Computed example of a mutant assay.
Amino acid sequence: MAKLDLKVPDLTLPDGNKIPFIGYGLGTAWYKADPNSPKDQATIDATETAIKVGYRHLDGAEVYNTEEEQGIAIKQSKIPREELYITTVCLYSTAQIWQSLPPLISQRSVLTIKQKVITHIDDIPAAIDRSLKKLGLDYVDLYLIHAPFFAKGDNKLLQQRWAQMEDVLASGKAKSIGVSNFLKPHLDAILETAKVRPSINQIEFHPYLQHGDLLAYHKNKDIRVSAYGPLTPLTKAKGGPVDAVVEKLAKKYAVNPGEILLRWAIDQNVLPITTSSKEQRLSDMLRVFTFKLTPKEIEDITTEGNKKHHRAFWNHIFDANDQS
């Protein structure tokens, strides 16, 4: 297959560091329930394929038990470390994460979770050391807190954990620090005492979960946004109001519908995290940098998306109709 001759553009973070504007995710699609299970060659192969095709931003997390596979793929790729952008995420509770995963994964992992609940949020400096050892790296480019729900509304606890993230930053073990799944009250809490603002907040974001004015809030606070689950309307909520407009635009731009959804995020300055094991599909998704949607097309998708609500993750935390 032909490799696209393009360079993925960067998004500049508030701290001045640059992050590639699309990430290859090693999340739920590659999840291993047992951290002691053998290395998953399929995960290694898919990650190597993503690097070969042109992805330089690899987005993983401790909870998915794929950091070792990610590290092996990085080493075997022979790409210089400084040309790769590596993200990982601090695990705070396997029980909470388990409940947020899709039903199929949840069923597969239920016995493991019942046997042992693991939390690393109490000692973030130790957690980053474990992750770096698994990855085989001296530092990550971006380190995130997986979610704020461990604090159960305790703002001081959120502030304490963010202070630990700042210690990780100061140590040089992460070039940038941020959060994931944080909403306005959680961000307000840590910003009250933060010496360093979060560089990015990674959230579930797609036309069926637009979070009201959350994007505007991030812009006001100078925090960037990345999106996991950006293809949810096609993968988990097919048959909704955005289908027609997305199909129409896919024909116009001669791309796949998924690329329209990725571009919809990018055109709103939101960095999408996506995945696939198929080389052609991975290459196709990079076509998002060969076109732009018009403001009217972005608005059309937004308007149609707001006619339906679908949250694919963290449904045990939020009420069914909660769109925050």
Results as ranks from 00 to 15, higher is better:
42 A>N: 10
65 N>W: 04
66 T>E: 08
17 N>P: 07
44 I>H: 02
33 A>P: 13
69 E>N: 11
33 A>S: 12
42 A>T: 12
37 S>V: 02
45 D>H: 02
54 G>S: 04
18 K>A: 13
22 I>L: 12
50 A>I: 03
40 D>L: 06
59 D>M: 11
71 G>S: 01
68 E>A: 11
19 I>S: 05
23 G>H: 05
38 P>A: 07
19 I>Y: 00
53 V>M: 10
18 K>C: 12
46 A>T: 09
28 T>M: 03
30 W>M: 14
60 G>I: 06
55 Y>H: 09
61 A>C: 07
51 I>A: 01
24 Y>L: 07
55 Y>M: 05
61 A>K: 07
46 A>Y: 03
62 E>M: 15
41 Q>T: 15
54 G>E: 06
64 Y>N: 03
40 D>C: 07
18 K>Y: 11
14 P>Y: 02
15 D>K: 03
20 P>V: 00
31 Y>H: 12
57 H>V: 10
44 I>L: 05
21 F>G: 06
45 D>E: 11
69 E>H: 14
59 D>R: 14
53 V>G: 01
53 V>A: 07
70 Q>Y: 15
25 G>H: 08
43 T>K: 05
66 T>H: 11
51 I>V: 08
47 T>M: 07
26 L>F: 02
61 A>V: 04
42 A>K: 14
59 D>E: 13
31 Y>D: 13
14 P>H: 05
17 N>L: 09
42 A>Q: 12
43 T>P: 00
34 D>T: 02
25 G>F: 04
27 G>F: 00
45 D>Q: 09
13 L>Q: 05
42 A>F: 08
47 T>K: 04
71 G>N: 03
51 I>P: 00
61 A>Y: 09
18 K>T: 14
45 D>R: 09
14 P>M: 05
21 F>S: 09
25 G>I: 01
32 K>Q: 05
49 T>R: 12
60 G>Q: 08
36 N>P: 04
24 Y>G: 00
22 I>K: 12
68 E>D: 13
57 H>G: 05
19 I>R: 01
66 T>V: 13
36 N>A: 08
61 A>I: 07
68 E>P: 04
70 Q>F: 15
27 G>V: 00
32 K>R: 10
54 G>Q: 07
63 V>D: 03
13 L>W: 05
56 R>M: 09
36 N>R: 13
27 G>I: 02
69 E>P: 04
65 N>V: 07
30 W>A: 14
16 G>C: 08
51 I>M: 01
42 A>C: 06
42 A>W: 08
35 P>V: 04
40 D>A: 11
33 A>G: 14
65 N>M: 10
56 R>E: 11
36 N>E: 13
22 I>E: 07
33 A>R: 10
51 I>L: 08
22 I>M: 15
14 P>L: 06
61 A>F: 04
60 G>K: 01
47 T>A: 10
42 A>D: 14
39 K>T: 12
63 V>H: 10
14 P>D: 07
27 G>A: 09
